[in-house]
Amino acid sequence: MRARLAATALTLIALAGCSGSPSSEQSTPAPQPSATGLAQQPSVKGTVATNKKTPLSLREQPTTSSARLIRIPHKTVITMACKTIGDTVSNGVKASNVWNKVTYKKKTGYVASVFVDGGDSAALSICQEKTSQPSTTATTRPPNVEQAIVKAARSQRGIAEKKNNCNPYGGCMPWSSLFATWAWNKAGNVVPKFSFSGDLYAWGAMHNRAHLGTDGVGPGDLVLFGTAPDTPKTSTGVAIVTEVLADGRLKVIGGDYKGTVAERTVALKGIYGWVDA
């Protein structure tokens, strides 16, 4: 890991600060991700599509092993708040790792989208919540991990999504974060599979790897676009740095750029922070 004293100092400031949009990396504390933004997201109606004898399990987390909160009968109309990534589940026709967040009879949890008509709706927002196990993720990095990340990311150049944002790195949803976490994990730099870029910044902050602005950024690091990590409107995407150019700009590679994995040159303006590889 590269020595970045100035960036580490900024991290300490960020972790001590309160939420808000950063105006300068030297003076503004980092905003904290908000889980309350879900109330402002558009909800979508769906219908449980299991069978007459098999109700749908509403689970505490988007995993088949988590606690069942309640069973939802076949053909029940439910309201989905958002979608996220979880265990892969098959309905016998197709398999998906997309889960929907649902409140049913005052219990809030997750249902596998393959059992909901409309569960993969493009109108559903990404759930804006931190991972349930951020502190247990390994933070050690293998030797030469930066080069390995760049190599893994570049191996995917030109790969495109299919209809409705369906991509090979996760479910049918915006996928810049899914691609970034795929490349890091492919290189042995273990990180949870996040579907929302703001959660990547929050995870980095928990492990002293998140920084405001761009001071100290280098190849293999993640840069976050937008103004703050709070919601998809303020944290609009993420890409992997492949090169720091002499003119101060960055070469980055990312997923979901015009529907493909693409490498491009970007200005520093519009980047609110970065996460250390």
Rank of each mutant, 00 (worst) to 15 (best):
T103C: 12
S24C: 11
V93P: 13
P33G: 11
R59V: 14
A35C: 05
P42N: 04
L56K: 13
G37W: 10
K75I: 03
A81S: 08
L38G: 06
A30Q: 10
N100T: 14
P33F: 11
Q26I: 15
P73I: 00
K107V: 11
S66E: 01
V102L: 09
P62I: 10
V102Q: 03
I72P: 15
T88I: 07
S43Y: 05
Q40L: 12
S90R: 09
L56D: 08
A49C: 02
I70T: 14
G92P: 07
T36W: 10
A67C: 03
G46N: 06
Q40N: 14
A81L: 03
G92L: 00
T54W: 00
P42E: 00
L56R: 10
T88C: 05
T103H: 02
M80K: 01
V48T: 09
P29D: 07
M80E: 09
P73C: 00
H74D: 11
P31T: 06
V44S: 13
T36N: 11
T103L: 07
T76H: 08
P42A: 03
Q61S: 06
A95M: 02
K83T: 14
I78A: 04
P55T: 08
K94I: 13
R68E: 10
L58S: 07
L58V: 14
N97H: 03
T88Y: 05
R71Q: 07
A67V: 07
P62T: 11
R68L: 00
G46S: 09
Q41A: 10
N51H: 01
K107R: 15
